[in-house]
Amino acid sequence: MSALLRHRLVWPAAVLAGLLLVNVIFTDGFLSVQIRDGHLYGSLIDILRFGAPLILVALGMTLVIATGGIDLSVGSVVAISGALACLQISGLGDQGSVGGVLAAVAVALALSLALGVWNGLLVSAIGIQPIIATLILMVAGRGLAQLITDGQIITVNSAPYKLIGGGYWLTLPFGIIIVAAVLTLTAFLTRRLALGLLIEAVGGNAEASRLAGIRSRGVLIMVYTFAGLCAGIAGLMISSNVSSADGNNAGLWIELDAILAVVIGGTSLSGGRFSLAGTVLGALIIQTLTTTIYSIGVPPETTLLFKALVVTIVCLLQSQAFRAKVFRRRAAPPAGRPAAEEKKVGVPA
């Protein structure tokens, strides 16, 4: 039992369960899942469906963060990928042509991949800090996306494309299937093959990894490329779901949500051990939080306040300095100053 409590996924899982519980109380039939017209329907399915792009982006982000890096550009890549796919599809004579849609998807994903390689090269070959290296694409990428869409919102009317983000396959929303596939693939590459070990080694101690003969440069390029690809797929999903591409707003701030999901999922921002399951949990928490806020009738504009609260609490709990200070205080409460200090820093939390 105590071993279970110490497991690092316990707290995220508990938070998610709590959120779901709140929903069960406030929404009738929250847990019911039904089959209508051969499709699965229900609030839980919706959370998964709407959360799918975030889970994808967060999966890519997990590996990047595990190497001790960060990728700020994923939001821009989301926009670029959706924009490029929609642009090509809108140019097709027959928007329903499966071949044309597949080609468009392939081109969009290839570009996402290339953007990921670019980030990886900046970080590993040139040696720029990850935050700064990916900031470049974060800024320029929005412009690129709008350049692709020519500042318009490109609307497409393509059944095959719609399938990616809004369709169903085997009664399941297609997005969930994609997430499941990517998750399985990631888990296979990192846990079944040895990529995960090398990533964790590089993030845990870069110099020791070098001396153990790990090609850390290759590992870095790989994780940024993977993050780019994940963001590209997420971009397709988002634009497919609304059958349009908006270079300005698609994937706005998804990088922050993704980083948050990773951190909530127990992967430390300083790199090392990562947990794919934790990230999925983290992303689901964020998505459920949004759903919950709607369902319990809190005005949706306070979503960000809750998020701020969650970020702060999770990060404080992860901070060793915080734990040390709090526990010391509990053990022997010293007089005066520390309490005042705590109050002061409590305000902006």
Binding site: I70, I131, L256, I259, L260, V263, L269, P299, E301, T302, T303, L304, L305, F306, K307, A308, V311, T312, C315, L316, Q318, S319, Q320, A321, F322, K325, E341, K344, V345, P348, A349
Partner: peptide, 27 residues
Amino acid sequence: AIIHYFEIQPFIVTLGGMFLARGLSYT
């Protein structure tokens, strides 16, 4: 103060601040 005393990366703390301030204005 949070950044200094609790040794959390400025990136994350100010990200929280970003959510907080934006959320407050929406509220």
